[in-house]
Design a protein around this nucleic acid. Structure first.
Lengths: 134, 134
DNA sequence: CGCATCTTCTTGAACGAGTCAAGATTAGGG
DNA sequence: CCCTAATCTTGACTCGTTCAAGAAGATGCG
């Protein structure tokens, strides 16, 4: 999998990759924690580095809703979006609601060449919703 | 306008508000610059404070595409979205392409109560597009 | 108009995510 | 097995943003 994108196979890389697979939408700190649990001491720099390398290679996707730190997920290339909870910051996946490329045709694009539409739904997760009612 | 939302009318506030009106999508630093040009010395803290107050009051909207610092705009409540240039970071407004509330109906919302859909289009602005061709 | 009060601004320090840089390690090809 | 270039470690540092304490200013009332 790493070889498929011309990257050397190192222990930190394998660990980061499986960490993200096992913990979708995890922030960098959590990933560092998981990786350290698996490998022992690993520098945060290495994790940042690996995350960037994998993101650039297209194996990971970086998401960063407002007011949150960077998070990573392994689902790539399937054009899905995210729901973010306004109170607790939980993130869930949402499949594209209107076909293959949702809203990709902006009405007035000002001459921009658009290649991607990113959608973030804001609301409250079930837990926070019911917590508000009580 | 400020009184309408129960905020005291101070020189920094007026200056910030008109700065954002005149410079849509400006980042905080630019706003500080504009405000200082108008008023003389103003602390960055005051600007941050005012921006937050106005955002909370609903007079401004804060946007923050990935890899960019916070930006503010005065168009609120009309459900429009943004195109962001991948190379130079320029931002332009895009009216909602599919009616009042675009994509607001996610297919599988995981029980989330959704109240807003935020759309960011990624691409290249006319300048950067042609710069790439040459 | 002047005063009391509470909000807002100034000053200065602190925080945290992320980045930069230099040198030690290590994976992979020959 | 060895060489070379990519990768990891260590540690310092940047930059946007926030926190805190005290001074200044706006608003309402007499």
């Amino acid at each position: 999998m790493l070889r498929g994108v011309n990257l050397r196979v190192t222990r930190p890389r394998v660990a980061v990759l499986s960490a993200v697979h096992d913990h979708p939408h995890a922030d960098t700190d959590s990933i560092i924690g998981v990786v350290r649990a698996a490998l022992g001491e690993v520098s945060h720099q290495a994790v940042y580095d690996v995350l960037r390398a994998l993101t650039t290679a297209g194996l990971l996707r970086r998401i960063q809703p407002q007011g949150s730190v960077a998070r990573y997920e392994a689902r790539v290339g399937d054009n899905h979006h995210h729901v973010v909870c306004r109170s607790c910051g939980a993130i869930a996946d949402v499949d594209c609601s209107v076909g293959e490329a949702p809203c990709l045709t902006a009405s007035a694009s000002h001459g921009f060449t658009i290649d991607e539409a990113e959608v973030v739904y804001w609301g409250r997760c079930p837990e926070c919703s019911s917590a508000l009612d009580s």
